[in-house]
C-alpha cells in the first residue's frame, strides 16, 4: 500500500494555513475572518498529526487535543465579543470598526 509522504501532508497543511491567512487578510466580515482563523488552527493540527504519525510518537496527537479545547474556548469568547460589538455598533464589518484608529 503506497502512502502519501510526510512532505505531501506538510505541504497540504501549509497551503491550508495560507488560504486561511489570505481569508483573514482580505475579508471584511468579522465572522468570516473568524472562520478563517479556525481554518488556520485546523491546518496546524493537520501538520501536528502528520508529524506525529510519521515519527511514531503520540505527543503530537495529544497536543491536538489541547488545540481543540483552546479553539472551542476561543470560539465561544470570540463570538460573544462579536455579538456584544454588534449590539453596540450595529455592524460587524471590519472597515467600520475603527474607533481605535481615530
Amino acid at each position: 500500500m503506497i502512502h502519501a509522504t510526510l512532505h505531501a501532508y506538510v505541504a497540504l497543511s501549509a497551503a491550508l494555513f495560507a488560504i486561511g491567512l489570505l481569508g483573514v487578510l482580505i475579508r471584511r466580515n468579522t465572522l468570516v475572518v473568524f472562520m478563517c482563523l479556525e481554518l488556520m488552527l485546523v491546518a496546524s493540527t493537520l501538520g501536528l498529526v502528520a508529524f506525529s504519525r510519521f515519527n511514531g510518537t503520540d505527543d503530537g496527537n495529544v497536543f491536538v487535543f489541547f488545540i481543540l479545547t483552546v479553539a472551542a474556548a476561543e470560539v465561544a469568547v470570540g463570538l460573544a465579543i462579536i455579538v456584544a460589538l454588534f449590539r453596540k455598533r450595529q455592524t460587524i464589518q471590519v472597515d467600520e470598526l475603527n474607533t481605535l484608529k481615530h
Binding site: 502519501a4 501532508y9 479556525e38 485546523v42 493540527t45 498529526v49 502528520a50 506525529s52 504519525r53 496527537n61 491536538v64 487535543f65 481543540l68 479553539a71 472551542a72
Partner: peptide, 15 residues
C-alpha cells in the same frame, strides 16, 4: 488516513 481515528471523531464532534 493518518490513523488518528479518535482525533477525527473529536474534530467532527467539536468543530
Amino acid at each position: 488516513a493518518l490513523n488518528a481515528y479518535l482525533l477525527a471523531f473529536l474534530l467532527l464532534l467539536v468543530y
